[in-house]
């Protein structure tokens, strides 16, 4: 079932950047690739009429930032931010890949060259749910690990013993971090020493991967 929509107005650029990987991409059943042509023209007309409900059935929406003018683009973003969706805007003139969250909606702005790369196929192959896969490919866990080390380090400063449930809510760590470093601690009060041990393990993993 299609739950990812990719909208591109510059067909040649998509073909050029993906090359033969475009065939592979189009073979994923979960992806609807609207690349120029009449389908794009029709979609653009719908957007001008503010018929945003077309996106309701998709959990991940990927589109070229300049495919729509500023007002239309802002209208789309305004609509989508109220839903639990992943929204990716790709463009040529920007640097890197920034990930932001508003309500339950995750937004990513990513450079077009980084977007049309192996990372896109990796992201789609894994269900198109983890935007860090799109930004960092197979290194996505490193980004989470670095982020988590910072969080835990700051959180542990002046820390007083607390039950895991409270810490879980306050720290909001990624599931893979909890599974790997906190699974044995979830049933007890966590101490500053526990955090020290977790950070040692995390840093060791980081060093071995950097």
């Amino acid at each position: 079932m299609e739950n990812v929509i990719l909208i591109e107005d510059r067909t040649y650029r998509q073909r050029n950047l993906l090359g033969t990987k475009l065939i592979e991409l189009n073979n994923y059943n979960l992806l609807k690739n609207i690349s120029g042509g009449e389908e794009f023209t029709h979609l653009k007309e719908q957007m001008l009429k503010k018929e945003y409900s077309i996106f309701d059935k998709y959990s991940t929406i990927l589109f070229h930032r300049s495919a729509f003018d500023t007002d239309v683009r802002n209208g789309i973003i305004e609509y989508l931010k109220n839903y639990n969706k992943k929204v990716v805007l790709f463009s040529g003139g920007i640097t890197g890949a920034q990930l932001n969250k508003i309500n339950n909606c995750e937004f990513m702005l990513i450079n077009v060259t980084e977007f049309y790369s192996d990372n896109l196929l990796y992201f789609i192959a894994n269900g198109a749910d983890n935007l860090l896969e799109l930004a960092n490919g197979k290194n996505w866990k490193m980004s989470i690990l670095l982020d988590s080390i910072q969080k835990v380090t700051l959180y542990a400063k002046g820390f007083e013993k607390k039950p895991w449930d409270i810490i879980d809510g306050e720290l909001n760590l990624h599931d893979i971090i909890i599974d790997k470093y906190f699974s044995e601690l979830t049933s007890k009060f966590i101490t500053i020493e526990d955090f020290g041990d977790v950070l040692t393990k995390m840093n060791l993993d980081l060093k071995s991967n950097l």
């Binding site: 890197g96 890949a97 990930l99 860090l132 930004a135 960092n136 290194n139 490193m142 980004s143 910072q150």
Partner: peptide, 16 residues
């Protein structure tokens, strides 16, 4: 500033 302001550490947005 942190090294990154967003949820993607490798965007180095703080450095930017």
């Amino acid at each position: 500033l942190p090294v990154s302001l967003t949820g993607n550490f490798f965007d180095f947005s703080g450095l930017i």
